[in-house]
């Protein structure tokens, strides 16, 4: 019964065109990045850095490296937007359209309904992150050869991996990115459970994320960065270094799981006490 209901939620979610906006934009953004790197001097700085550190640049200017370069702006900017768009829609859109009233005339509990919707949102996030990784490597492979992976964030990360090792780090970075995506989706989902419009739920979630991000980067707060929500959302970035600091990953995962539970509890409490009216 639960699986049938979950299948129903997935039909609803993936039957809507707007669900696919994120996938479409990823395709576009990734192709633009790949083409820019292929047909411009964008990789010159990267070559200089690699050669300056005695690495064979051509080996590391690979599809994996370009896919990782694509990952950063998309993971920071686009992915929160699309997961919060879907998370914000999950309950609020049904309330706005009136279909929620029809569902709740049936003997399904509100908490069960929310759980189904949350799982559907988590599966969407998984698919979106999976698509991000697969599309990234696939489009980069159209223009760049298979080879080592180079990750460079000035002052933060300088990592050089062989192809297999690089693929491993790239994959686990995406697994952690899924946790990030689910958390942002869960935040928007929480707002969606209140009596608000779907757009308001999305905007509130994004505002919360951006506000955290801004505050976290103010020098005054540098010392207490780990208290911020967005600090832990970045755990996927920690997968692109060697060695991986698993204790730090574990700590961020615990915090994010706690955030997810909190968001769900707040959302379901708000939804439980709400009057569902036309």
């Amino acid at each position: 019964m639960f699986w049938l209901q979950l299948r129903g939620e997935l039909w609803k979610l993936f039957g809507k065109k707007r669900t696919y906006i994120g996938f479409g934009m990823f395709l576009l953004a990734q192709n633009i990045v790949a083409l820019v790197f292929r047909f411009s001097n964008a990789s010159r700085e990267m070559v200089r850095t690699l050669e300056g550190n005695s690495y064979v640049a051509t080996y590391y200017i690979s599809s994996l490296t370009i896919a990782t370069i694509m990952l950063f702006p998309i993971a920071y900017m686009l992915m929160p937007l699309y997961v919060s768009l879907v998370g914000g829609d999950l309950v609020a859109k049904e309330a706005e359209d009136g279909t929620l009233r029809m569902i709740l005339s049936r003997p399904v509990t509100r908490v069960r309904l929310l759980l189904l919707k949350w799982i559907a949102g988590a599966l969407f996030s998984l698919l979106l992150v999976f698509a991000l990784g697969i599309f990234g490597v696939a489009f980069a492979a159209l223009w760049f050869p298979w080879g080592g992976m180079f990750v460079f964030i000035p002052g933060e990360v300088f990592s050089v991996f062989g192809p297999e090792e690089g693929l491993y780090h790239f994959t686990i970075a995406h697994i952690m990115l899924w946790v990030t995506a689910v958390t942002v989706m869960g935040l928007a989902f929480m707002f969606s459970c209140f009596n608000v419009k779907p757009a308001a739920a999305t905007v509130l979630a994004l505002s919360f994320v951006f506000l955290n991000f801004i505050l976290m980067n103010i020098p005054f707060f540098k010392e207490i960065q780990h208290w911020f929500f967005t600090y832990h959302l970045n755990l996927w970035q920690g997968m692109l270094v060697e060695p991986i600091l698993w204790w730090k990953v574990g700590s961020s995962l615990t915090v994010l799981v706690a955030f997810n539970i909190t968001f769900f509890v707040i959302g379901s409490t708000a939804f439980q006490v709400r009057d569902i009216k036309s």
Binding site: M1, Q5, G8, K12, I103, R106, V108, L113
Partner: peptide, 11 residues
């Protein structure tokens, strides 16, 4: 499809 998914909330 609508009938299918709505009915599944009951049985």
């Amino acid at each position: 499809r609508n009938l299918e998914l709505l009915s599944q909330y009951t049985a």
